[in-house]
């Protein structure tokens, strides 16, 4: 079952060894076997649907290969990467993607924290209502939410200009306002998720500490800063990491609202355009690999840099 293609480093260790030091009892051995029998299929499928495609993508990224012209496929080493990395469009898309990621995650963290506090403290009569309400944006299809926001701000059907008295202002006519709407819809849709992660973190803050701080005469803000937040650092980091990675992959909103018009392309959208529209499989694969590397980089920075212990945060000791 084990394979060495996955980024995490422990692959070689996974093969159940037949004779480790200190003979295993039969029971332990059969437990091992059963463990892998039960978990194996899920593990294998996860590897199959991700590891295999990314290896394939890397392989194809080394070719000059256009789908409508398969006869002229040729091996070109890393020239696709050179084309991408020297092209201002890639850096522009990367800038847009990073911008969207930073802005949405920052706003969501603040907003999500407020929501989590409300849910944590809410009186019992409003709690189910609040919970239900915030689950709706979480559960709604991203494409639907994108359409809702787009129709709301768009020039021909939107009510926003009518309400704000903006007349014929075209929100999607310039890069910044268009990106702002894209961010808004993203924030609306995903803040609930971040607030639920934070809510779980809030529940872990020991009540005694809060009480003690109160007795010591700490203000609400001091308690928040000195007690609450430090005690839920793990939860905050996990929430940040997951949202950042999710935001970095933004695609649906942009596809529906602007199609990359007015320089609003994200890296995922750029990759889609090369592969699916231009049918340049080689170039598109190279972009896919680059997007993947960016995601890995973000994850590594978080995990190593901020010392996010995902396993312990996820209850795995």
């Amino acid at each position: 079952m084990s394979t060495t293609t996955m980024p995490p480093t422990k692959a070689p260790k996974t093969e159940p060894k037949s004779a480790p030091k200190g003979a295993l009892s039969d029971r332990a051995r059969s437990e091992r076997r059963l463990g892998w029998m039960l978990a194996g299929p899920a593990f294998a499928i996860m590897l199959l649907v991700t590891a295999y495609p990314i290896v394939q993508a890397f392989y194809e990224s080394l070719f000059d290969y256009r789908l409508t012209d398969p006869d002229n496929r040729s091996f070109t080493w890393f020239s696709n990467y050179a084309v991408i990395l020297t092209d201002s469009i890639w850096w522009q898309a990367l800038g847009v993607t990073v911008g969207i990621t930073v802005v949405t995650v920052a706003v969501e963290l603040v907003l999500g924290f407020a929501l989590a506090m409300v849910m944590h403290k809410a009186i019992t009569s409003v709690r189910p209502v609040v919970r239900t309400a915030i689950l709706i944006p979480y559960a709604i299809i991203t494409v639907v939410s994108a359409f809702a926001w787009w129709y709301g701000f768009n020039l021909t059907s939107g009510f926003v200009n009518t309400w704000l008295g903006l007349g014929d202002y075209d929100w999607f006519g310039d890069t910044l306002p268009a990106l702002a709407i894209i961010c808004l819809s993203e924030i609306w849709k995903t803040t609930p998720f971040i607030s639920l992660l934070l809510l779980a973190g809030l529940a872990q803050v020991p009540e005694v500490l809060q009480e003690a701080a109160k007795v010591d005469g700490a203000t609400w803000l001091q308690r928040l800063w000195k007690v609450t937040i430090p005690n839920m650092k793990a939860a905050i980091m996990v929430a940040l990491l997951f949202r950042a990675l999710d935001a970095f992959r933004i695609f649906d909103n942009i596809f529906i609202m602007t199609r990359g018009n007015n320089n609003t392309e994200s890296v995922s959208f750029l990759a889609y355009r090369q592969t699916i529209s231009r049918l340049e499989i080689g170039l598109g694969s190279a972009l896919s690999v680059l997007v993947f590397l960016c995601v890995v980089l973000i994850a590594v920075v978080f995990i190593k840099g901020f010392k996010v212990d995902l396993a312990s945060a996820r209850g795995e000791k």
């Binding site: 260790k13 159940p16 990314i54 992959r249 995922s268 990759a271 896919s288 995601v295 995902l310």
Partner: peptide, 24 residues
């Protein structure tokens, strides 16, 4: 159950979860 590779499975799940769909 107690078996080696538990953490590997969970970490794999994590990596798969952060995988960009466009790369696949």
């Amino acid at each position: 159950l107690d078996f080696p590779g538990k953490r590997l499975i969970l970490s794999t799940a994590l990596v798969v979860a952060i995988f960009p769909a466009i790369s696949i």
